[in-house]
Design a protein around this nucleic acid. Structure first.
Lengths: 339, 339
DNA sequence: CAGCGGGGTTGACACGTTTTAATTCGATGA
DNA sequence: TCATCGAATTAAAACGTGTCAACCCCGCTG
């Protein structure tokens, strides 16, 4: 069922059918109509692999995120998909699950599929995978990951500023001891948010040692529960406030605290990061740091496709958004607690 | 950068390189080593589009879900991806956003890409899109959608039973008037859960008119908020209990109720559907109907790949799971209310 | 009337892989 | 010594599309 059958059925040559599909303006209206009718009658759909083989690249882009279970990334993906489909591109969506191996495997799939370009939220910080792709001549835009390097585009939100914002608010509210619940410390997001928190501590004149790190191996609610249990079980006094690298972590933390009879924000204030939809509906509405998630996806896609369309004329850009603090019940001192 | 360059570099013919890639056992150990070295040195990666063109189909499967913003579907997708990658297949993940148009567009992409098979959670009930695919000889498994038709596999959970379970519990707890907050009524999930609720009403000896439908155009938290506002604003008395077609809807409903000072479950009991992770952490922990989400994805993938591997010998199966009620605070009468 | 130009169409080739049938080569047995 | 056999490798064809140079036809100009 190829272009040839359509051509025969319409009484034209295969080349003409191809022209109808790709440069309709070059073919006379009457023959075009005839070909289109044939296409419809035969139910023809273009063989993408043949196109891709001929063209050297497909009309899909690859999107790799850290965790599909995190609404932050699915919101981003929505932005990507809408922006891409407006330009006639399809999106192949993949998740690395924060695993270096899976990132590499999935990137290999992208390479095999000859996607037109890749949007990558990298697990590691070295940009090795991105470099490998670019070495093959494949445009890459880093997503939710800033780069100092000028050889590629990136779109990100200032996580250091976000961390400073969150911790700063907790300190301003009177907290003297802080815990930082974090996922894998190798993740740039975690490291930067921690750096911001430390900066806030310094500004407040407190020693960096005041920040107690609680690292868990994932960034979901279950891991957050584990972190909270660790905080509760180790015998010492609870910190005045807990800053979580992630709303999912924060929701897990919150849940265990409440189950254990700890008052939030009375005994402990909690603040998360990402401002996912569920945070506002949590048992204690969660303060958080909001990012322009959907926009992140849209803009990254635009940059990527711009580079694809004109690799020579394209000027790489490093876009950096500023996050915004959203204060709700969970960090509002005097809002419902013991103190 | 093709098989030919690798062949030249290793001093063998292209056919041998292909054999190394696909049937390593047929090539002598020493030449195999030489070819593998060449592959590594040149950084060769197989051109998937050429493979696909030759084979007639790629080694990817397409997965189309209703809503990537719903954790129910991302959990399912996790099951699919893990099961597929165990067998060497990659997954192209797409969301129809509950829109018929987008479903059709994305299925077209699947067809163009010549995916090996499709896992489809259809928007409509007619199975037209699935039929079109199967007419092209492409295996399709319906996901979260039962079929009476024996010409295809399906994997689903009994939504009528789930609806009956949920509404039955609300009635057993003493509710006499019920609201059903639902997304697009054309969605099978919504229709079936409603049917179950009606069945429960009948069993309890109540008139079907007792069920007050509140239909909103989407199945997310925002739509749930709209539904709750509609319930509050129309002047009449609130129902004793609200059954939501979806946890996202329920979380939205819950939020607006609590903001308006309505006690849950004291004034109104609420129960959702899907038992997503966030439900347990909601302001009032949400009762819900649990489904074997991850298993759904795994089993559907297994069925699909089984059909792909042996289209003739494959016997279609219609798998139906039974849901399970999870009772939490939001529907526990006497748990914290006025009554 | 011959020549010219241009819009519309065609035919053939290339893309990179897989596969099948054919070929080489060394060893074995008669 | 020669025929035979099997293992290892090769050459060539095919998959369906896009492109590009060539070609045809027709009207127009000189």
């Amino acid at each position: 069922m190829g272009i040839k059958q359509v051509a025969r059925h319409a009484g034209v040559s295969p080349g003409t059918v191809s022209n109808v599909l790709n440069r309709p303006e070059r073919v006379a209206a009457t023959t075009r109509a005839r070909v289109e009718a044939a296409i419809r009658e035969l139910g023809f759909v273009r063989n993408g692999s043949a196109s891709t083989l001929r063209a050297g690249h497909s009309s899909t882009i690859g999107l790799m995120v850290l965790d599909l279970g995190n609404p932050f990334f699915t919101d981003m993906a929505r932005g990507v998909e809408e922006s891409a489909s407006e330009r006639g591109y399809a999106v192949i969506l993949s998740s690395s699950g924060e695993s270096d191996d899976r990132e590499q495997r999935n990137i290999r799939v992208f390479a095999e599929q000859r996607v037109r370009g890749v949007l990558l939220t990298p697990v590691g910080d070295d940009g090795e995978n991105a470099d490998r792709l670019r070495a093959r001549g494949m445009p890459v835009v880093l997503l939710d990951h800033p780069t100092p390097r000028a050889n590629q585009c990136s779109v990100a939100v200032d996580d250091v500023a976000g961390g400073e914002l969150a911790a700063g608010r907790l300190l301003a509210d009177g907290a003297r001891t802080l815990a930082f619940v974090t996922g894998p410390t190798a993740l740039r997001q975690c490291a930067d948010r921690r750096k911001g928190a430390l900066r806030a501590l310094r500004t407040a004149g407190l020693a960096p040692g005041t920040l107690r790190d609680v690292a868990v191996p994932a960034m979901n609610a279950r891991a957050g529960q584990e972190a909270a249990r660790r905080l509760l079980d180790d015998g010492g006094p609870l910190p005045d406030a807990i800053f979580c690298a992630n709303d999912l972590l924060a929701l897990g933390v919150l849940r265990v605290l409440l189950q254990s009879g700890v008052q939030v924000p009375g005994d402990v204030a909690v603040i998360g990061y990402d401002d996912i939809e569920f945070s506002a509906a949590a048992a204690v509405p969660l303060s958080s740091v909001r990012q322009p998630t959907y926009q992140l996806g849209r803009i990254a896609t635009e940059l990527l496709l711009e580079e694809c369309d004109d690799p020579e004329g394209h000027a790489h850009q490093q876009v950096m958004f500023q996050p915004e603090l959203v204060i709700r019940e969970s960090s509002r001192r005097g809002g419902g607690g013991t103190e």
